[in-house]
Amino acid sequence: MGIAEERITRLHQLAHEATASGDFDLAREYVRLARRVAERNRCGLPKSFRRFICDECDAYLRPGVNARFRTQSGGHVVVRCDCGATKRYPY
Rank of each mutant, 00 (worst) to 15 (best):
Arg42Phe: 00
Ser21Ile: 08
Lys87His: 07
Ala38Gly: 15
Ala67Pro: 09
Glu5Pro: 06
Asp23Trp: 01
Gly64Asp: 12
Arg7Ala: 14
Leu45Pro: 10
Ala59Val: 10
Asn66Leu: 06
Glu5His: 12
Cys81Ala: 04
Gly2Ala: 13
Ala4Gly: 07
Asp82Gly: 10
Tyr60Ile: 04
Arg36Trp: 05
Ile3Val: 12
Val78Phe: 00
Tyr89Gln: 09
Gly2Trp: 03
Val65His: 05
Ile53Phe: 00
Phe69Tyr: 14
Arg42Leu: 04
Ala38Glu: 12
Leu33Cys: 00
Asp58His: 07
Val65Phe: 03
Gly44Asn: 13
Arg35Gln: 14
Ile53Trp: 00
Gly22Gln: 05
Thr19Arg: 07
Gly2Asp: 15
Pro90Ala: 08
Glu5Leu: 10
Thr9Asp: 11
Glu6Lys: 15
Ala20Pro: 04
Tyr30Ser: 02
Ala18Val: 08
Pro90His: 05
Cys81Met: 05
Gln13Leu: 07
Leu11Val: 15
His12Val: 03
Ala85Gly: 09
Lys87Trp: 02
Arg70Pro: 00
Asn66Phe: 02
Ala20Ser: 09
Asp25Leu: 13
Val37Gly: 08
Ile53Cys: 02
Pro63Asp: 12
Glu17His: 07
Val37Glu: 11
Thr19Ile: 11
Asn66Lys: 06
Tyr89Val: 14
Ala85Ile: 06
Ile53Asp: 00
Arg80Asn: 11
Thr19His: 03
Leu45Asp: 10
Tyr60Trp: 13
Asp58Met: 02
Tyr30Ala: 01
Arg36Asp: 12
Ala18Gly: 09
Cys43Thr: 15
Gly84Asn: 09
Asp23Thr: 09
Asp82Ile: 12
Arg51Val: 13
Ser73His: 14
His76Leu: 04
Ala20Val: 07
Val37Tyr: 03
Lys47Met: 07
His16Met: 11
Tyr89Trp: 11
Thr86Ser: 11
Gln72Met: 05
Gly84Met: 09
Arg88Ser: 11
Arg28Glu: 02
Val65Glu: 08
Gly75Pro: 05
Thr19Lys: 10
Arg32Glu: 09
Tyr89Cys: 10
Cys81Val: 15
Glu29Thr: 14
Asp55Pro: 05
Arg40Phe: 04
Ala34Trp: 01
Arg80Gln: 15
Lys87Pro: 01
Gly74Leu: 05
Leu14Lys: 12
Ala20Phe: 04
Leu61Arg: 13
Arg80Leu: 06
Leu33Ile: 11
Arg51His: 00
Leu33Ala: 08
Phe69Trp: 15
Ala67Tyr: 03
Gln13Lys: 13
